[in-house]
Amino acid sequence: MSTAGQLAGRTERADAMQARDIAINVPTVTVDDPITKAVRVMAVNRLPGLIVVDDRARPWTVLPGTQVLRLAVPQSYQEDPALARVVDEGHADLFWMELADRTVGDVAPNHRAKPATVRADATLLEVAALMARQHSPLVAVIDDDGALVGAITLDRLITSLAVYTGED
């Protein structure tokens, strides 16, 4: 096949792929769930982030893994590195305990960014651009009503691009 033919074929296949084709089902949490549960959901399911949904199952926010950590680390330690340094080793691993029963909603930032969401018919280019722009390895896929229908992880996107549009 000529180079032009390969490119045309690749383009055709890439166009055929939409967000809904590579979306997977992922467990979600709500703003009322404890942070400890949110972290556990992410860890057990080996997710690169978390989707927080509202009471109508619409994405409220999409948090990359580092931002989930941000919920879990008391804000005073994040803002003051000196304070984090003074905590002795015996207690340093126990900062989780300070979270007690606080929920995702309690510690979520006041100024939430627009959730990283794409429509089910979005192209893989749209998905990739959104992930790059929002530094998010996780994107929520929504239907016309804004309800969550699935999610795309960075790993899933890269794999799909490599498998379906890569060199033979």
Partner: peptide
């Protein structure tokens, strides 16, 4: 004792 374990000298790097 938990307070005495805090390492204040580490605050100043």
């Amino acid at each position: 004792e938990a307070v005495m374990a805090l390492q204040e000298k580490r605050a100043i790097t």
